[in-house]
Simulated scan of single mutants.
Amino acid sequence: MTIDFKKGEGLVPVVIQDEKTLEVLMLGYMNEEAYQKTKTEGKVTFFSRSKNRLWTKGEESGNFLHVVSIKEDCDQDTLLIKVNPVGATCHNGTRSCFDSEYNQNFIFELEKIIDERYNHPLEGSYVNKLRAKGINKIAQKVGEEGVETVIAALNETEHDFINEASDLIFHLLVLMREKNVSLSSIAKNLENRNSGK
């Protein structure tokens, strides 16, 4: 990378994005030293303009931003860092400094929650109860929810349809996790199909 730190008098803006949900979490600034430290340690470090020093996000709260990827923009004067956040990103306790009315990418968050249940089973969790019954039962639930979604679309209220479609998507996500297929794999496949048209 050839980041141009001179344009901003030694600082470049850094957009922080959740790698899984794609939500923009915050904006900060880096000088070259903060950039090198971030690359070396794998945790986002900014140059704090108010403290006039390097500042690793989470150094006090423990809410670190673990680096997944770093990309520069076309002008080489802005960075996009995709992260796996630990806890809330904003000092106000919200997941993002640009806190929206609702998490518009919650489906990706749900994928993370299901993955967490698989990796760290939680007693009483519906995901873990379903998983214990095996792939045949999980697949059967997807089929049942698919039929119920169709029935709701044809004969029931919009509210009923939304509920059934939500159940279908949830169970499909569990089946995808059972098969180790991610939403990003589906998105890439759909993108490839679209580009062929």
Rank of each mutant, 00 (worst) to 15 (best):
G196Q: 14
N192I: 06
F46R: 03
M176N: 10
K51M: 11
R117L: 01
N136S: 15
V67I: 15
F170H: 13
G42K: 09
V86Q: 09
I70D: 03
T89W: 02
M176A: 15
E109I: 07
M1L: 12
G124F: 05
K179F: 11
P85A: 03
N31D: 15
N180L: 13
Y126D: 12
S184W: 13
M1D: 14
K112G: 14
L79R: 01
L110C: 12
Y126W: 08
L54G: 11
C90E: 03
A34T: 05
Q140R: 08
G134W: 01
V44D: 06
K112H: 08
N119F: 04
E19T: 02
I169L: 15
V127R: 00
N136M: 07
K57E: 04
C97R: 04
A132F: 02
E116Y: 12
G8I: 06
L65P: 00
K37W: 05
T40A: 14
I135G: 00
V44M: 08
D115C: 12
T56V: 12
T157R: 06
E148D: 14
K39N: 09
E9T: 05
G134S: 00
L25A: 03
E19S: 12
V86I: 12
I70P: 02
R131I: 00
V86N: 03
K112D: 15
E178K: 00
F5S: 01
K57P: 06
E109C: 05
D167C: 10
G124Q: 07
S195F: 05
G143H: 05
S184C: 07
K112Y: 09
I3R: 00
G28I: 00
